[in-house]
């Protein structure tokens, strides 16, 4: 994140768009606050705090946007300069898939493939290390939790684990 260069106002300025996102969130919070009722001063309602926090959020977001217009800021591209964005992207995709699989399949059936994918896809570890690690780490933790601490990890529809 190098801020030395101050380019003229550009639409792909990342500061600008995070600020816009901030305003959008702020407006949403204000609306939720209004919907939940502000109440009165001697009995403030559920939306009281949300409403004012929403206002503050908009104010801070506007400050960020103003700064981005006057001072410029790093572009989206420069944020990822020299970084291989594919790897975190792949992890996010794998974890999302895992999130869907965890409940129906259970901890062991879903976590062993997860570990294997993480070990092999992102920055490959050799198979002879990846497989034992992917199997032993989840099974080991599962066993310790189940026997030692009596914590039942999700067993899923096949009731394995």
């Amino acid at each position: 994140m190098t801020d030395q260069t101050r380019p003229p106002f550009r639409l792909n300025n990342s500061e600008l768009w995070t600020g816009v996102l901030g305003i959008a969130l702020g407006v949403f919070v204000i609306r939720s606050g209004l919907k939940l009722k502000l109440g009165t001063i001697n009995d403030p309602g559920s939306g009281f705090m949300l409403f004012y926090i929403g206002l503050l959020m908009c104010a801070f977001a506007v400050t960020i946007i103003l700064a981005s217009v006057t001072e410029g800021g790093p572009t989206f591209g420069s944020r990822w300069e020299g970084a291989s964005w594919g790897k975190p992207g792949a992890i996010i995709v794998i974890l999302s898939a895992y999130a869907f699989a965890l409940e129906p399949l259970g901890f062991l059936i879903s976590t062993i493939p997860l570990m294997l994918l993480l070990l092999r896809v992102i920055d490959p570890v050799r198979w002879t290390l990846a497989i034992p690690l992917a199997v032993l780490a989840p099974v080991g933790v599962w066993w310790v939790l189940k026997r030692g601490l009596l914590i039942q990890l999700p067993s899923g529809m096949f009731e394995i684990g």
Binding site: I112, W127, T128, I131, P132, V135
Partner: peptide
């Protein structure tokens, strides 16, 4: 092969 074997063992 080793992969298959390991998987089977597991």
């Amino acid at each position: 092969n080793r992969l298959a074997l390991s998987a089977a063992v597991a």
